[in-house]
């Protein structure tokens, strides 16, 4: 009798040991793994460029919903003006404007460029947004349309002049990708329509292909470059392709863009079709863009 009891106790102890071993193993498991796999979320790629401009060109980025982005752009004169012109610093063109994000995808903006006293307004819509996770999208695609009106008097006041003759339209698709944390690249097929052109040889509709890129050097510093290739036989000889290179410096709410460019105008129709500067001759402007964002309304969350 006693022995039987002893045997069963022994078995009990053994079981006890076995089970406590089991629970010890259980206690060490990864508790969170009990919840299973994380639900897949869509990760929209952000900050492919520091602002919604490469420099002159619109970048892949949009102004966030509910945010107002105040823009001050400056272009000094050509640096080949020499010491007499203090390397261009005597002359200054300015565009003052603002962009507003109606949603995270839709941006509107307007501004005035002192160069030829031109007003411009634009609409930009991000149709495709590069993303990973539940929804995968390899690229971003934005559609852009802008109107500009020149307000300096007509050169020939004797002929019959129409307001419409001072108007310009630009249509652009901006296609690109943030390839890595530091490298982004975009292409923008562009159409500029001019209601009135200077000579018969010049086309009213000008087709161009623009490219822009960003290389991040550190968290707050990046090199940006852009080039606009105008397809041949559309513009007069004196017009050159626009090339711009510079730095983006980000300081909290501001982004400063310091750069060199051969374009005087800061709006699409200007730098695409009216760039006269030649880099090889030193027709280079030093310029800067300042962007300051203000949160006006609570952004519409996706």
């Amino acid at each position: 009798m006693f022995q039987k009891d002893f045997a069963s106790i022994k078995r009990g102890v053994l079981l006890c040991l076995l089970l406590s071993l089991c629970s010890a193993v259980f206690a060490q498991e990864d508790l969170l793994s009990l919840l299973g796999e994380d639900e897949a979320t869509t990760d929209y790629v952000k900050a492919s460029f520091k602002t919604n401009r490469v420099v002159n060109l619109h970048s892949l980025e949009s102004t966030a919903g509910g945010v107002f982005d105040f823009k001050i752009n400056h272009r000094f004169g050509f640096i080949n003006g020499g010491i007499d012109e203090l390397f261009g610093l005597d002359v200054a063109m300015i565009r003052i404007g603002g962009d507003y994000g109606i949603t995270d995808r839709l941006t509107v903006g307007a501004g005035r460029n002192s160069f030829e006293k031109t007003y411009d307004g634009f609409l930009k819509y991000k149709l495709l947004w590069q993303s990973t996770g539940a929804k995968e999208m390899p690229i971003s695609l934005a559609l852009f349309a802008s109107t500009a009106i020149r307000t300096i008097p007509f050169r020939d006041p004797d002929r019959e002049n129409y307001v419409s003759s001072k108007m310009f339209y630009t249509f652009q698709a901006i296609i690109g990708r943030k390839f890595s944390e530091s490298f982004s690249f975009q292409l923008s097929p562009t159409l500029v329509h001019r209601n009135l052109v200077a000579t018969r040889a010049e086309k009213n509709d000008v087709l161009a292909m623009a490219a822009g890129t960003r290389l991040k050097l550190s968290k707050r510093l990046a090199i940006n470059a852009e080039y606009v290739y105008v397809l041949p036989d559309q513009l007069a000889e004196i017009y050159k392709n626009s090339f711009t290179i510079g730095f983006d410096i980000e300081t909290g709410g501001h982004v400063f863009q310091l750069h060199f460019t051969n374009s005087t105008s800061m709006i699409e129709k200007g730098f695409v079709t009216e760039t006269t500067g030649d880099w090889l001759d030193g027709d280079i402007h030093f310029g800067f863009n300042v962007s300051r964002v203000f949160t006006v309304a609570k952004g519409k969350k996706e």
Partner: peptide
């Protein structure tokens, strides 16, 4: 990335920088 800020730019900097 699921932290939500009042200001979109802050959220971007928070994640990015």
């Amino acid at each position: 990335k699921a932290f939500q800020f009042e200001k979109a730019l802050m959220q971007e900097h928070f994640n990015e920088n």
